[in-house]
Nucleic acid binder design. Structure first.
Lengths: 214, 214
DNA sequence: GGATTAACTTGCGATATGGTACAAAAAGCA
DNA sequence: TGCTTTTTGTACCATATCGCAAGTTAATCC
């Protein structure tokens, strides 16, 4: 039930007035995200969330709203994190192959980490869940899929401009193949396919996309 | 609550002894499958299943066992259907490209059909659900993924033997790309990506796998 | 027609779940 | 020291869910 005994989290705080919070919203949201990602929306109870975050239900409620809102906020958080690591990879100039390797390695790390087994990709998990019945959630999922496509397309477009790919290469087709590779490893990771095999799939896909190993 | 008013389903029946069933197990299982596929395990209640199948809960029980068993039987049924259409496609001799087109078209039909929106792929839905926590279900999912890989590998191996693919082509790598394409359209279909776009993804992937359109 | 068999219908009980009301607690402010 | 403000902790409610028990109905067998 306890989360952390350090109330003065960030340095500068404007001296809040009432009783201090016993939790840090950011890390609590992270715990909720982990749970939702592993168990899905429907089979994660508020009791589970309460235990994982160290907050009791009323606190959860006042901090994040009801279960659906908490799920949405968790997903947004997931996307922000993913975007951040993507941006990091796109910051420097490098060969396509290397950039692809980094992107896939990052994906694998996200999907395979987790204390109680691989967690997979939250976008894929949400897409496959009953939650897609909710139009707002479905829109977010679609946006997540599109964002990944665009990142890969950007990657291949740059490569083509630099002459790393033949003129016949279609960046958007390659991007969809790359996204497909991400999706397949996300799914396989949930089935506990060992890391080695997932890495082999990635390597094979890269070879096909940018030309054989060298 | 009513399912069908035709008791003498198949022609030859060994004259059962007690009160006749008011349902046909096969079509009931199909309805259950539809529901599970759309809503997932956790958020499909026995009441939902009862209504969809036209059987009340005790009948469901005696026919299929508890909810988990029903889910497993639904998944097995799904796999049998998928295997059957695969076998059909592999029956005759044809160019790789055409065979791939048929396989993907079949997948699209399965994923996009459904009265209340696309249903997606049951293997993918199960992989992404909380049900993977169950070792037996996880094993079935893994088996489903592997079976698809093998079917595609078989397809590419034949093509290579017939000289349709260059000697450098690696059937198992191509197979994983093809599976990845299936997985990505399964996921996107759940996000309601329109059929046209999914078909474009398939076409692009085929071009990359077996060489440009001709 | 009566016995037997198998399925159907109704209804229940134990538990879990999402959500909330209300009072105690811990801080600042005067 | 009292007062206000914000959060926590406990308890609760209405509902939903799974699974099953007991009795009823409809068919065949003798």
């Amino acid at each position: 039930m306890v989360q952390k005994a350090k109330p003065p989290a960030a340095a500068a705080e404007p001296k809040r007035r009432g009783r201090p919070r016993a939790y840090e919203p950011d890390i609590a949201l992270g715990k909720a995200l982990d749970l939702f990602r592993r168990q899905g929306f429907a089979s994660t109870s508020l009791d589970d969330l309460s235990e994982a975050t160290g907050m009791n239900r009323p606190s959860l409620y006042s901090a994040f709203g009801d279960k659906r809102e908490l799920y949405i906020k968790s997903y947004q958080r997931y996307r922000e994190d993913a975007r951040a690591s993507m941006a990091e990879i796109f910051r420097q100039e490098m060969p396509v192959r290397q950039r692809l390797e980094r992107i896939f390695a990052s994906a694998l790390n996200i999907y395979l980490s987790g204390e109680t087994g691989p967690r997979g990709c939250f976008t894929v998990v949400t897409a496959a869940s009953e939650a897609v019945g909710d139009p707002e959630i479905r829109a977010m999922v679609l946006d997540g899929l599109t964002e990944l496509d665009k990142a890969f397309a950007n990657c291949f477009r740059r490569a083509k401009e630099k002459g790393e790919l033949p003129a016949s290469a279609d960046p958007s087709v390659l991007a969809q193949l790359a996204s497909a590779t991400v999706h397949t490893i996300a799914i396989r990771s949930r089935a506990r396919v060992p890391r080695k095999e997932l890495e082999a799939i990635v390597t094979g896909a890269i070879d096909v996309m940018v030309g054989g190993k060298r």
